[in-house]
Design a protein around this nucleic acid. Structure first.
Ligand SMILES: [Mn+2]
Ligand SMILES: [Mn+2]
Ligand SMILES: [Mn+2]
Ligand SMILES: [Mn+2]
Lengths: 220, 220
DNA sequence: AATTAATTTTAGACAAATCTAAATATTTGT
DNA sequence: ACAAATATTTAGATTTGTCTAAAATTAATT
């Protein structure tokens, strides 16, 4: 598989949300920043290689082989993102472009060893799940801290209330987007929460918790 | 610069041994495992981009820009090799193919951070020098252990006497090709040497030392 | 010095990946 | 249901990197 084919397969997977959804030529073109006519050409080639089902004017769908290829590329992309953030101290929002290149390096041994070296991580720095070698993974969802049960763990990915005051609070308490947050306890009395971020335990009010989004893995 | 252009520039650098030597079309073709006609085409393109001087039938020579480009690619190649061996536990003789791919990843920040993460290494797992960001490096040479002064440090790259007995000795003492070896002391009386390999000190006879090759950096 | 051999370049072709412009099919709105 | 708008495909061209076969140049041998 060429670099370009891999990028197309990945785009088709993302646009179809991993489901049995036919994906339109135009949507692929937009995602890949190319022209629809280029997409048609490539989609024909992918169809020849049995990576997608394709019917003229009716969109495109990954075959099982195609789906597994997509997951393999996504696995590599996300493992490299973990490497860049955990080992090389990249910020969570500057890893995508580099991972976009690294995901195409061909060596099964490399990925196996990288996975082990990183401690077999289950999620990438954006909270997205890392598929296993054989293409299995839990889906991830975006939830408010207050919506989650005790013991939950996720990655801070956004805020509901983007007021200056709220952002200042987060900054002051050394909570940044991209940080892993664990819910240790909930206080029935006032709904306040005990959490751990960057190894440090702290208590936050229900109001804070209801404005901070975590990306968490779904239960089985 | 495309991946292919980078590989050509690197090949031309290696064939010219970093000196002002004109390199022949055929030698490049052999090194790159392509046809001479393909080399001629590429060499014209590189000449257009002022990466090489090229005169029909007279061979090709890197310009200063070309030389610096070559060193930049070699730097990346060797840093990745160190990463694969030191961090991912690859054997020294299985890293080349993967590094051949990784050397083309485009991100200055990535290489800076990788360099720092690896502890700014000066040599790769084969004992070859790693050029600095601005293209400076010491040449490396292959020397018998006995030819080197106390304090020398290098990488085991070969044997003079490949007898079973000698190889068994190395194996028994846990010395493998690719290991870093440091010469701690020399005994005038019998020429025996005190060395350190893999953190362990040991004493070897002059006969052993005169059959083991080290790749070492030249003094300034 | 002339012939032969080896090297190098040119000419023409091809596959991959892309584009523009034009043709065709599908969807939408009346 | 039909026209207009939108989406998709085709046709033809371009760039990059490669190849084969043939021509041209340089080097080696008698
Ligand atoms: Mn990519
Ligand atoms: Mn990610
Ligand atoms: Mn390479
Ligand atoms: Mn090396």
């Amino acid at each position: 598989m060429t670099l370009s084919e891999e990028d197309y397969i990945k785009a088709i997977y993302h646009l179809g949300k991993g489901l049995d959804q036919a994906v339109s030529t135009n949507s692929i073109a937009e995602q890949m920043d190319t022209k629809p006519s280029s997409v048609t050409d490539m989609v024909k080639k992918l169809s020849e290689k049995d990576l997608v089902f394709y019917k003229k004017y009716k969109g495109v769908l990954l075959t099982e082989t195609g789906r597994l290829s997509a997951l393999s590329i996504i696995r590599k992309h996300r493992l490299w993102e973990v490497f860049l953030v955990d080992k090389l101290d990249f910020a969570w929002d500057e890893v995508h472009e580099v991972a976009e290149q690294l995901e195409h390096i061909k060596s099964e041994k490399l990925i196996d060893k990288l996975d082990a070296y990183l401690g077999n991580p289950k999620v990438d720095p954006h909270g997205d799940p890392i598929p296993s070698k054989d293409g299995e993974f839990k889906k991830s969802v975006k939830r408010l801290v207050t919506e989650l049960p005790i013991g939950s763990q996720g990655i801070c990915v956004g805020v509901n209330d983007s007021s200056v005051a709220f952002l200042k609070f987060l900054d002051k308490n050394n909570i940044s987007l991209g940080d892993t947050l664990e819910i240790l306890d909930k206080e029935d009395f006032d709904g306040s929460l005990s959490i751990r971020v960057k190894g440090k335990e702290m208590r936050i009010s229900e109001q804070i918790g209801s404005n901070l989004f975590l990306e968490v893995l779904e239960k089985d």
